[in-house]
Structures are given as C-alpha cells and as structure tokens.
C-alpha cells in the first residue's frame, strides 16, 4: 500500500513543507523564502522569524495541496542539519509538534543527502558522482561502503557563497546566482583571475578577492561576472572530472542551488562527454532548498526504520554528510 511522508526544510533562507508518496510522487512542495535586504547576507535570526511567521500557512498549504489528510501520513521528517541554528530550530519545532500530536515517527534527515537523494529520484541516476553546489556546500561525492563519501570539496568558501558575496559587493541581494549568470551572458571578455585547484579540492577565497578588486577598479560587472563564472566553474568541473576518472563511474549528477546555472551544466556536459558519462541536473524548480528533498529522503529512511525520539531530536548545525549511515542503498 502506498505510504506518505511529510517533510520540513528550514536549514537557511527557505522554509518549505512537502508531502511525497512512497512511489516518489511529489504531491506538494510549498516554500516561503526569506530575502535579505540588498547588499547583505542571511541574518540567521531574521530568517528564523520569517520562517516562524510563515510556518502555519506553509504547513496548511502543503497538506491541502497534497490531497492527503494528515491522518494518512506515516512519518514526519525534518532537516536536522547542517544549517543555521535559529532556522533549523523552527523546522524542528514544527516537525516535533506534528509528530507528537499525530503520534508518528520523527525522522531526521541530513539536508545535503536530501539534495542528493531527490536528485537521484528525479533524474533516475543510480550510482553517480555527485557535484553538490549551493550556498552551504561545494562537494564532490560518491557512494561507497554504506555512506556518501566526499572525494573533493572547497577548502574555504562554497560556490554559492562566492557568487553571493561577489554579487552583494555589487549591491545585489542574495541569492545572486541568476543575476550573475545573466550579466555573464552579455560578455566574452575574459579577465585573468586566480585558478586554484589543490588535488581534488578547490579554493575560492583568492578568486573572490581578485574579482572584487576588478570591480573596484572599474571593470564592467558583466566582464567580471563572466570571468568569475568561467574560472570557478572550470575549477569545479576539473575536480569533478578527477573524481569521475578516479572512480570510473558513468554518471554525473549536479544538485544544489547552483545546479540551476546553465553555463555550469554546459561545462559539465562537455567534460562528461570525454568519459562517455551521462550528466543530469536536478530540475531547476527542485534544485534549491525545498521540503521535497527532506520528505523523499525521510521516506527512504523511514522505510529502513530510522527515527529519533522527540527528546533526542536536537538540531545539528554541523553535520557532515559523510558521517551519516545510509541503510537504504546497496
């Protein structure tokens, strides 16, 4: 018989609730996104207040839109981490309340694994090298020995932070990825920027500083955006290629908010072609943070009887995905 899981996401700027079925149907996925003022980043407390004030509406809309009465849901899952403490706590409170009042198991989900598993569901990827690129992560990941393993990552900023901090320096508000992509598409004037690959890892801090200096020196935003994208994306493509060559896998999956960028997807496609590997990205509407990633991964975990008592359901701001046992994969 079909089962249903309700999932709550609230790790950063997005508060979202989704209901999915055990067959992988996303029946609803309602979001409320906190937008910081121009030029500034996410203020964790402000974001949590925004989540609190929209929580009731988002839950009712997600349940209503799914067409599944709460009484038919078999588990409540929530993003236990990693993320911003105040934001995580809002989602945890909402999930605990639902689980206690409905007497349902409470399933903790690692947000990053949520991105990966939802990406696998939506693209049909089975055993991919995963590039997880968002505001919170820049990691190259592959599954082996009951865990998702990190094969490479950023040594400092994430790709999302690089784009956001660069965009905000220009006065944009986060998230800035789309505005930078649009500006970049108007230029083909490459300005030399530092390209930093250390083994399987990348470093973006020098690239950010150099890009800001170019802007400060009067270079056009379009040219610097173009050069920044070309450099940063080539770096992550190179380390993804290294992981692909090293593991010998045949699929590449791009997940996380930056997966929406078409230039990045284009570079990855060009790279994968050399290795006769297939590339897939999570569809744009579900690539960013959303309840569906938590609900679907919640189902996978619930199927394997993963749950946490309410009394132990603390949030974990720092919770690396390679520390999570994955009982649902071969």
């Amino acid at each position: 018989m079909k089962q249903y899981v309700l999932g709550v996401e609230s790790t950063a700027h997005t508060f979202s609730v989704s209901v999915v079925s055990s067959e992988g149907e996303i029946l609803s996925n309602v979001k409320s996104v906190y937008k910081p003022p121009g030029g500034s980043g996410i203020h964790p407390f402000e974001a949590s207040q925004s989540h609190l004030s929209s929580a009731k509406r988002v839950v009712s809309e997600a349940v209503g839109a799914s067409g599944i009465p709460l009484g038919e849901v078999s588990a409540i899952s929530y993003a236990m981490g990693p993320g911003l403490g105040p934001c995580l706590r809002v989602g945890a409170v909402v999930a605990r309340t639902l689980a206690s009042s409905l007497d349902l198991p409470l399933v903790p989900v690692n947000h990053a694994i949520g991105h990966i598993e939802l990406g696998c569901l939506l693209t049909g990827a089975r055993d991919p090298v995963v590039l997880l690129v968002s505001g919170g992560h820049t990691m190259i990941i592959a599954y082996s020995g009951r865990r998702w393993r990190v094969l490479g990552e950023s040594l400092d900023l994430t790709l999302g932070q690089l784009l956001d901090q660069f965009g905000r320096h220009h006065g944009l508000s986060s998230p800035c990825g789309r505005a930078i992509e649009e500006a970049a598409s108007e230029s083909d004037n490459y300005l030399r920027l530092p390209y930093t690959v250390k083994g399987n890892d990348v470093s973006f801090s020098g690239l950010l500083t150099a890009s800001k200096l170019l802007l400060d020196g009067g270079k056009p935003f379009a040219d610097v955006s173009y050069s920044l994208q070309e450099t940063a994306f080539a770096m992550v493509t190179e380390v993804t290629e290294r992981a692909l060559a090293f593991t010998g896998k045949r699929e590449v999956l791009i997940v996380g908010g930056v997966a929406a960028n078409r230039r990045l997807a284009g570079m990855m496609a060009g790279m994968a072609e050399r290795h006769s590997a297939a590339v897939a990205s999570t569809p744009v509407e579900l690539s960013g943070d959303c309840g569906a990633q938590i609900a679907w991964t919640g189902w996978l975990a619930h199927r394997c009887s993963v749950s946490v008592p309410v009394s132990e359901s603390k949030v974990q701001q720092s919770w690396r995905l390679d520390r999570v046992d994955i009982p649902w994969r071969e």
Binding site: L151, F246, D322
Partner: peptide, 17 residues
C-alpha cells in the same frame, strides 16, 4: 599538510575499510 589531506581524503573516500 594539504598533501596529506588528499591522501586521507582518498583513503576515507575510496578505501574506507
């Protein structure tokens, strides 16, 4: 140390046992 980090990353990532 970055050199040793890559060895460790490779070991933990590809040869966890």
């Amino acid at each position: 140390a970055v050199d040793l980090r890559l060895i460790k990353e490779t070991l933990v990532g590809a040869h966890p046992e």
